[in-house]
Design a protein around this nucleic acid. Structure first.
Lengths: 205, 205, 205, 205
DNA sequence: CATGAATGAGAATTCATTCAT
DNA sequence: CATGAATGAATTCTCATTCAT
């Protein structure tokens, strides 16, 4: 039963002042999610921390989920930007590229583990939102393409199944291990092991 | 910062009537977690749904986290019971055993995906509880032993690292894929693929 | 508007078992008042601490105030018993007797300052009870007689006024200074000073 | 064991409307304390009586103790203001000044006996608050200075002991006798008697 | 527009007390 | 009669959100 959850920004801030307001809100939200987790994420607290009036908050965001979505989008974009170079790199050394991608993915995930965790918890209600699913899909698409590329030559019967599997495997593991606070050294070791397994299994060259 | 969160039952119900009450509470909690997720899980709603007075709730549970822990324990035990036969099976056919374990694990996870998801979200606050960690550890220990057993002969240098990796990989993937509502057929295919990869990589016989 | 506050014991415990129950309750109540103050004094906690069922509590006490009154009575009696020898002592050395009485009174009050303080706070609601006022009066009467005796010869016009004054002055000061946690040494010094002042002013010989 | 009891106002009301709200709350609190005593003093009842929403209450006061402290402060200040002229009066007629001070003190105390009594009971929880102790000390300091002044010439060995004694004696007696509902006439008679005793004993001129 | 103010609804928890066995 | 069980009514406090200026 997907609720009527309007998640889109009420209006685009145009004046510098308004932009500053929205920025402050987003920053405060990010800070609170990081430091106090999803439970501490309340509209009033965010507005307080941002130093803006709660009514101003509702000027730009129709509800607290909209802000959450906004933060999630920004976070996602930021992380995608970090991964972009790896994803975009050309060449045919798929094995090396995959290994590097996984390492990078783990590292990026680890860098904001706190925020990610909080978002994951808080975003539960966003899940039945078209926009949120779209966001997730967009992100996944890039990775999917990348994996597809590496696999195509060794293509087994059902490429899309394997791609889905690898994406799920990589992302879920990354999410979980960073959540557990795995050390950087072990993290990289895990990344390499995972890469090795995939490369070995699929015979990626 | 471990809060003072007393999670143990306040008193054991003795008369049949009281047992029924506690059962009703647990059942209602389970239902609500399944249907309305962690957000809907409030002491009042649970008591309401269970048809018992809120004060009765607090006669048996010192706080709502205690109930949550109780439900988590029951769920965990139930699932462990399903896995136990596989885990306990003797014999040296490690490859077959591993494959079956993973299939079984995925199936079990899928069977109560809704509840598991809700518990995962709701249990955030339980995490810094000694008792909760103990519960998690107990469950993990069995699996760990099982994996260790399969790996021992092919033991690479750092057994514990590999065991940790496999456990994390399997459980995080299972969690995620069931969460996404993967179909049973695909689920089993994924299980087999994961098993194959592990068996292949570690040369499990 | 004096509430309908029935403060009398529901029934006198006769069997040894019942007497033990009541004793346990009283002891628990005293302990809780001392240690946790008036705020911690709840029927359930008392019953718990006493190890008796809450229903048993209400078998003997019609309400929690009745227990409070009972404890107050016992406390009062116990303190009166300590003062009795001084009050009863014959002889005409009124000055010495007064000095000793005040010292003794202060000491007695100090000995159970915690309990007294808690009772004072908790007993607010008892004040508009006939029985409570009676209890207070009974205690005061003895003292009043003692003071009257000391004053009679030096009787100014309105004996009862002076007696009331002295009783009030002594008891209120004792209550207050013990409440402040005055040290024993200072307490005795204050007692002597107060006695001196009274002896001097009234010319008590 | 000083609890974390934040007693300071959450935010200052700025608009007239808000000031009216806070005023209404304070007034309601005072009324309830007077009429229904400390036991009736609950946040909801106060808000109800004040005709404001309970959430508005918590917009200005972080907890009910903060309101209590606020009322206590206002009461204390009001009473101090009445005593100030007497305390500040210069001149060397210490005996007359002391007599007048005690009379005034008794009268002031009697004027709001109900409120004072309720505050005394309700403020138990405030006692381990730095701010409350500060408030008490401030008030006591003035009186102490006044008494010191009267006593200095006749200074016995330990001035501070005597000052403490007199302050305690006067305030505890005033508290108690007003609490008992002593008539105005008798009250003044008691004041004079107490003054006479002190003047006589210390030889205050 | 931004701010101060306000609030309905609900959350967690407690308490005095009664009832059935 | 003692115990286990149950509960109505409060109590403290929070949250998302709206409105008036």
């Amino acid at each position: 039963m997907p609720r009527k959850l309007d998640i889109s920004l009420k209006k685009q801030p145009k004046q510098a002042r308004a932009i500053a307001t929205v920025d402050a809100i987003v920053e405060a939200a990010t800070y609170i999610l990081k430091r106090h987790g999803a439970a501490g994420f309340t509209a009033n607290k965010v507005a307080d921390k941002a130093g803006v009036n709660i009514a101003s908050f509702y000027q730009y965001f129709p509800n607290k989920e909209a802000l959450l979505f906004h933060v999630a989008t920004l976070t996602w974009d930021r992380q995608l930007a970090q991964l972009a170079p790896v994803l975009a790199r050309g060449g045919q050394d798929h094995a090396a590229k995959l290994r590097e991608f996984i390492r990078m993915f783990f590292a990026v995930e680890a860098a904001e583990a706190d925020l990610r965790r909080a978002l994951r918890i808080a975003a539960v209600e966003l899940k039945d939102t078209a926009q949120f699913r779209e966001l997730m899909d967009e992100g996944a698409a890039l990775t999917r393409t990348f994996i597809e590329d590496a696999l195509r030559e060794r293509a087994p019967g059902d490429l899309s199944f394997d791609v889905r599997f690898i994406v799920l495997l990589t992302t879920s593991f990354a999410e979980r291990t960073t959540d557990e606070g795995t050390s950087d050294a072990e993290l990289m070791r895990q990344a390499d092991l995972l890469a090795d397994m995939l490369i070995g299994h699929y015979g990626i060259a």
